[in-house]
Computed example of a mutant assay.
Amino acid sequence: MAQRYASALFELALESGTIDAVEADLTRFTALLAESEDLTRLVKSPVFAAEDQARAMSAVLDKAGISGLVGNFVKVAANNRRLFAVPGMIVAFRAMVARHRGEVTAEVTSAEPLSDAQTASLKDALKAQLGKDVTLATSVDPALLGGLVVKVGSRMVDTSLRSKLNSLKIAMKEVG
């Protein structure tokens, strides 16, 4: 379902030449979700009626200055009781945009937010390794303790401190 909605949004953005604007609005919407637990609850909870979700989302989008394709997209999702799937739709849309641009998306999880310098360095290293431009989808998981987990397609590199400690724990059990 997320793929279908994202595909429809991508086709509309491509036809109207507004891929960059749509991507920017989706980034703003994602930031709103990250900043507000109440908004996340509204999006994910099946308790709210479709009309209530649509009305609330309309107000949030207007206040955030998100209109056009993305505004209509989120409102349609709310009216169709698919608001809970919007984050997945955004991920699918970004993957389509990356393919369209000839980019590869790398999912990067770190123990702490990456600095701009670290992000640039990681992008450069991945571009040198893959031979393509790389878009990073970053997330933070303090349970990693340190290091990174990088996923590109079906490949994963886990340099997290948590994994290293687990490996050490297993090795110590085998010795004992």
Rank of each mutant, 00 (worst) to 15 (best):
R82I: 01
M172L: 15
A92T: 00
V97T: 05
F10V: 09
L161N: 02
M172N: 14
L42C: 05
E174D: 15
T119H: 01
G68M: 10
A85M: 11
E103F: 04
D20R: 12
L83N: 08
T109M: 13
K151G: 08
T30G: 08
V140E: 09
V22S: 13
S121W: 00
F93R: 02
L148P: 04
R155F: 13
P46G: 02
I90N: 07
L33T: 11
V74K: 02
T40V: 06
D141Y: 11
A59C: 06
V86C: 04
A49W: 06
L14W: 01
K151I: 11
H100C: 06
G17H: 00
M89G: 02
D20N: 14
R41N: 13
R28T: 07
E35C: 09
V152E: 09
E11D: 14
T30Y: 03
V74H: 07
K173M: 15
S121C: 05
E15T: 01
K164P: 08
N166H: 10
A120M: 09
L161P: 04
R162K: 15
F93S: 02
E174F: 15
P87R: 05
L32Q: 05
L12F: 07
R94H: 07
V134K: 01
A56M: 06
M156W: 07
V47P: 06
T18H: 12
S7L: 09
V60A: 13
R81Y: 10
R28W: 04
A56T: 05
R162T: 15
L136N: 00
P113N: 13
G71K: 02
A21G: 12
A77V: 00
R41T: 07
T159L: 15
D38I: 04
T159S: 15
E107G: 04
A59S: 12
E174V: 13
L161D: 05
N80I: 00
K127N: 04
L14F: 02
A56S: 09
G68W: 08
L114I: 10
E112F: 14
A31D: 14
S45W: 02
K123L: 07
L33I: 15
Q53H: 14
V86A: 05
V47S: 13
A106P: 03
E11T: 14
M172G: 08
N80K: 10
L12K: 03
L42E: 01
D141Q: 11
N80R: 10
L83T: 07
V152H: 06
L168H: 12
A31C: 04
P113A: 13
N80L: 08
S110D: 12
K127E: 12
N166P: 07
S7R: 09
P113C: 13
G102W: 07
V60R: 01
L61Y: 04
Q3N: 13
G88L: 10
R41H: 12
A21F: 05
L145S: 12
G131K: 08
L126D: 02
T105Q: 04
A171Y: 11
V104P: 07
L144H: 08
A64I: 02
E112W: 11
D52Q: 01
I19L: 15
D52V: 03
